[in-house]
Design a protein around this nucleic acid. Structure first.
Lengths: 356, 356
DNA sequence: TTGAAAGCGTTACCAT
DNA sequence: ATGGTAACGCTTTCAA
């Protein structure tokens, strides 16, 4: 039989409460007795209070649930996601809290079960394409929630840590149009989720994935402000946020007579792929074609990528802190962090011959 | 007040058991009643049975605890670790089980608390430098354990999925000596953990970190078999398993008169760093200096790295399966997976002038 | 098909 | 400083 609190209590002839206190409230009993209890526990192979029972009673689990879309490999592969999770984990770990990675399967019923069964004190929702049904369930769990992307995704009761995606993208776009570029292509991931990387015609106001939507709208803001009609911009869907997809997507902007002179990407990863595509074609970034990314991941610097630097780790860390130490003032539970435009060598003046 | 099973039961005038069955045993009640219960639950904002209470009663948590050393950023950054976790997550997800990431803080008491408090059905231990005290606690938890690296780390009651690290390294070493190399450097991570990347003199039989130890011993096996005394091999400690450390480490092998003609690394990541270092110095890998890695991470192919291919994702997946569906036969709970030598362009014949 | 009763192992609270 | 008692919310017999 597995040892329980009672086992130890009986062994020493003390009460359960006392044994419990030995673990949870060391100041409530004499050090001497506590030492005896602990050593008896060791001797009997008692690992300490059963975590589940403790949680049931105390109402605390010491875990944050992190909802991840289907293949959570992405969470481990995408540099932005990795940075975010790292920040989140740091905040959690500092409070002896762990992360419960919840991998939502494709099957909706199974996904609901995963959420319902998750023993957590709070949920962190980031990188949420569209799990409407999941959101509702999360809400009914009644635990604190922090949103990592779309500030509207959950309603005002959720904490939020993000950036102004649209304004940031607009700054990139302005940088590009100010350099004289008018033949612009936009490479964006998950515009449509049919898994195909190709040019698409989509209304920026009608994109499903919030982050991409905002960034594309920001690009459009800049284009329109410079008198470039949106119809003139070539929009390319990248099936995934991966370097290879970026390279593939770039083909649709480069291998045509009216080649784009600037390619705006919704992420650094895609932009690195675009740079690969340029290299293959003997084109020089910043001279022949300008390229921008988004995020400022570590690899961006070496690649000389012009991009938006955003505090990815900080986003995760703050998310964790809001969940575990929510500030009194509700206003402080909704944070929009600053970003900065980092101009490097992949962008330069438009040198292409003027077209009609 | 939060809704519970009882709330729903009272609302409908049925018993708790029936409501419970509606969730856990749909076949135990009429579909019609079940539908009424579910809709009442929805209406009252009941998210389903409380996971903690359910776990306490049923003894199952649907979570695997993954022990990670101090900064779990590594788990998200190291390509091998990422692959392993992905496999583990796949296996878990297929069984509606989640991963609880347990970040062991430096403080030992805190670490013990984290382990004691973890509500999990099983533990996965991989990448375990030395948490002796943690191991003992994990054992006393009395749940299934799978070991990811050192088959001896826990005793025979633990499942194990690994590779023959030493034999694999030996094959790399043999490849190198067969190419005529005699001036060999070994770049290994965590030989000593003083955080310094520099040449060290360490007894391969006496290394703390199992994986590095075995790989270095494998290299030594090959050297000795070819008549190269171990004293002639330059051993360099990389402070961490990161590309930059590899580059730094390489300096100690390259920037000296008796430059090594071959550099064996304990990981692909380090090897990529070594290749960086060669490039900076105008040396060509495979011609001027041969370089080998270990793991065959995705980037290895593009870099033309000669390495050992090991089934990283599979290791994780099998670990998860052993934990969740342990085979009857204990022999099947200890798996040593095959690896293969992948020869690419970073290794070539020794072309250096013979030395005395 | 449904319900009543007995815990699961702990902690909170109040006494002593 | 220590102990007794009552939950925490559920699942699991077993009986109806």
């Amino acid at each position: 039989m597995k040892a329980t609190l009672q086992t130890i209590a009986d062994e020493l002839g003390v009460s359960r409460s006392t044994v419990s206190n030995a673990y949870s409230r060391p100041d409530q009993l004499s050090p001497e007795l506590r030492a005896r209890i602990l050593s008896a526990a060791q001797r009997l192979g008692y690992a300490g209070p059963n975590p589940t029972a403790r949680s049931l009673r105390s109402g605390k689990v010491n875990a944050i649930g992190v909802l991840l879309t289907d293949n959570l490999s992405m969470a481990f592969t995408d540099p932005y996601a990795v940075a975010y999770l790292r920040g989140l984990a740091e905040a959690a770990s500092a409070r002896e809290t762990s992360l419960l990675l919840l991998n939502l399967p494709k099957d909706e019923a199974a996904g609901r079960r995963v959420i319902s069964n998750a023993a957590v004190d709070a949920f962190c929702l980031y990188c949420v394409p569209d799990w409407h049904s999941a959101l509702e369930l999360v809400r009914s769990r009644g635990v604190p929630v922090v949103i990592g992307e779309d500030p509207q995704a959950f309603g005002p009761e959720a904490s939020y840590v993000g950036i102004d995606e649209r304004a940031a993208a607009r700054r990139l776009g302005e940088h590009i149009v100010n350099l004289g570029h008018r033949d612009i292509a936009v490479v964006a991931h998950w515009i449509v989720d049919d898994g195909v990387t190709t040019q698409v015609h989509a209304d920026p106001d009608d994109l499903r994935y919030y982050v991409t939507g905002e960034r594309v709208r920001g690009f459009r803001d800049a284009a329109l402000a410079a008198g470039v009609p949106w119809e003139r911009v070539v929009l390319i869907n990248a099936a995934g946020n991966q370097r290879e997809e970026g390279a593939q997507a770039a083909a649709h902007a480069l291998d045509r007579l009216d080649r784009a002179t600037a390619i705006l990407c919704t992420s650094d990863v895609l932009a690195l792929g675009v740079l690969d595509a340029l290299r293959v074609r003997g084109l020089q970034a910043g001279r022949d074609v300008s390229v921008t990314g988004f995020d400022d991941i570590p690899e961006a610097e070496a690649a000389g990528l012009t991009t938006i630097r955003q505090p990815s780790v900080e986003r995760g860390r703050l998310a964790g802190e809001l969940l575990l130490d929510p500030p009194e003032d509700p206003a402080l539970r909704r944070l929009t962090l600053p970003v900065s435009l980092v101009v490097r060598s992949t962008t330069g003046p438009n040198t292409a011959k003027e077209k009609s």
